[in-house]
Every structure is written in structure tokens, then in C-alpha cells.
Amino acid sequence: MDLKHLEDFVSLCDTRSFSRSAIARNVTQSAFSRRIQALELWLGTSLIDRSTFPTSLTHEGRLFRETAEEVLNMLQDARADMQARRQLSRRTISFAALHTLALSVFPEWLKDIERSLGPLKTDVLADNSHNCIESLVEGKSDFLLTFHHDAVPLSIDPERFPFIVLGEDRLLAASRCEDGKPLFALDGETSLLAYGPNSFLGRLSAYAARVSNVQLTTSHVNDNAVAEILKAMVLAGHGVAWLPESLIRRDLASGHLCDLGADVRMQIRMYRSADRTRQSVNQVWEAANTLPAMRLS
């Protein structure tokens, strides 16, 4: 059974004339008649009472008309929905970004891009490093916003996935402040609020502690590597955590948090896939290349 057989049948229901439906369907009357017969053969019953004039439907034909119209309407709606989604997908710029960058960097950076290009349709996957890289590599996202440090290299092909440096950030040890002084010091008695050991920020904060000769006692591990959760723990006075400066700069300025040092600098990078060459993607890439480097102040 072909979809056109259903369309033929619905046309015949409307015109009650083989000749008029054949003209409307742009086929000969004999070909149109064969297609109706093929539908009846497939269903195993007669749909048309050919003994009457004008042509009328059998009881089975009247029952099947509702089904045929419903199937065609559903298919047309589904096709229109898929086409609309495809057009929206073509217009939408998709980003995968680390949670911290999606919250503290992306909104203002996007403003700068839109000053150059005008309003954009965007969607953002805010996730951990592994899932964001996977989204870029598998073609689900046009761009990846991530931190970079040589101590924690990204294992992706630089030719397939070129990058530009958008700016710089610091990962620093932070403590809650009370009366202008840190509640904790960087010593062995202090509780460390840690990221999962396999996350980017977990590996980089371990590197920062190591190069600064800092040894703390881990009291809490945030396995999903969301820096915002550790920030809330630090503000509540549970211990010390290494946090991106871009995330806590207002808390540092207001005196709610203290910078304990033991910091490392890291780049903010935007990667793209060389395979994704839509005009809108290229325009965002070119506009990003013209922006001055981000400053945390």
C-alpha cells in the first residue's frame, strides 16, 4: 500500500467521480481506478459501490474514510513539524559550555557577539567537561566553551576542532570571610571541599595544591563537578575550595569570600568543529575572533 493510494481514496470520497479525481490527481482514469483497486485488495474489502451514480462508498468505505483522513493529517502534521524543527535547527547556534562558563561568562560574551551580528537564536548545554566535549565531537553542538590548562589537556584533534582563546581566568583557593579575615587557612587542619577527581576542575585544583605545596583534608566531594555548589558550601563556612575567579569575583569584592592564593591561570577557549560550516556558525566564529580578550575586572 502506497501513501498515494490513501490520497486517491480521500479524493474520490470528496468528488464521488473517478474522472474528476483522476484529473485532480494528474493520472489517467484507468491508472486511478487501478490504484483504488490496489487499495481495496490490500484491505481485503470493497470500498466503492460501483453500481451507483454518482459513485458512493460502501459501509466499509465510510468507516475507512475516517481512518484514511486521520492518517494523512497525522503524516502531514508530522512532516510540517519535522521541517519546522529542521529550519529552527539551521538557524539556532548551539553551545556546549562548562557549568561555570555558562553562568558567569557566556551571557556577557553573547551580548558582545550580538552587538556585532544582531540577535541570535541560541541553545546552551551546561554540563561537565566530558559531556560537553562529547557534544561537540558528536556534532550535537556548534561550539564548546571550556577552560584550558596544559596540566589538563583536552584529548581532541586540533585540526578537526580548532579553537580561539576568549580570555583568561584564575582557579584560586577561597574561604569564607568574617570581619575581613579568612575563616580558614591553607593548612592540614582545614577541610577541603573537592570536585570529583576525574573532572577538569578536580584535576586542575589538585595540580594547584601540589605546585603550591598545600595539603588539606578532604571533607566533601562534589562528584558532578559543579563549582556553584562548592561555592555555596564555602560561603556557608564548610571549608576551602578552588573556585574560578569569574564565578566569585562579586563575592571577593563584597568581602564575603577571601582569596587564599595558591592559584593557577587558565585560558577560556571556544572550540568549533571544522565540519560545521553554516553561515551563522562562521559569522559567530569570525565575530568572536574580533573581540578583545575577556577581563575579569
Rank of each mutant, 00 (worst) to 15 (best):
R249N: 00
L72N: 01
M233K: 13
I229K: 09
L117R: 11
L154S: 14
R91A: 07
V221A: 14
W242S: 03
I133K: 15
F143M: 05
D263P: 00
S297G: 13
R34N: 08
W285D: 10
M294V: 10
T217Q: 12
H5L: 04
P244V: 12
A209Q: 07
A102S: 12
S205C: 03
E69P: 06
L235C: 05
A232D: 11
S205Y: 03
Q267N: 13
W242I: 03
D2M: 04
L247F: 05
A227M: 07
L172M: 12
L145T: 02
L39A: 06
R90Y: 07
R249M: 00
G44F: 12
G118V: 07
S94N: 09
A174P: 03
F147P: 01
A84S: 00
D169C: 04
P244Y: 08
A185F: 08
D14H: 12
R25K: 00
F143A: 03
A97L: 07
A208C: 11
S175E: 02
H220T: 15
P119E: 08
E178A: 15
M1P: 11
W109Y: 13
H59Q: 14
K140S: 11
H238P: 12
L43D: 14
S51F: 11
I113F: 01
I164R: 05
T52G: 10
R16C: 13
D2Y: 04
Q87F: 08
R65M: 05
D2S: 08
S89D: 06
I164K: 03
T218H: 02
F106G: 03
A173T: 00
E66V: 10
L12Y: 06
A173F: 02
L47R: 00
D275I: 07
A126S: 14
A206N: 13
N282V: 06
L193Y: 04
R115L: 11
V214F: 00
V124F: 06
L145F: 03
D8E: 09
N224A: 15
N224R: 15
I248W: 00
